[in-house]
Design a binder for these strands. Sequence first.
DNA 1: CTTTTGACAGCGT
DNA 2: CACGCTGCCAAAA
Length: 129
Amino acid sequence: MTSDAAEKPLDYSGAVHRLAALVPAGAVLSYKDVAELLGSGGARQAGKAMASAPDGTPWWRIIRSNGSMADALAETAERHWIAEELAAPGRHVNMNRYRWNPSDLAWEKIDALRTALGNPKMSEIDDQL
DNA sequence: CTTTTGACAGCGT
DNA sequence: CACGCTGCCAAAA
């Protein structure tokens, strides 16, 4: 049991998966937000990474910037959104209202992910979100 | 090395 | 609101 979740080389995908796992129920992030938080890559990279997200990953909390989800997953995602009170049936998620605002502890983890990716730490994020 | 490909974003029509 | 086009950036072929 060495340490814990076996030190992965942490690829971009790995970082995306971990970040997604940090998002609590009742909150969401857009693919672009994920990329911004990690300090590199783009929305498409985040999406590609999510396509290979491991079981247990709350993928429905990572959505499009317009509050929708890819067609193939829209139905399942909506079910979760309703369960978490993120949206009403037939409605998209209101990003402005439910965008995740990381806790101080979460910021530390995010910072660690940025560092692991070889990106500059977020010294003073201020408010890019 | 070049080209293709995406669970995307944003703007114009 | 529906399309279409461009930008984006890493991984895979």
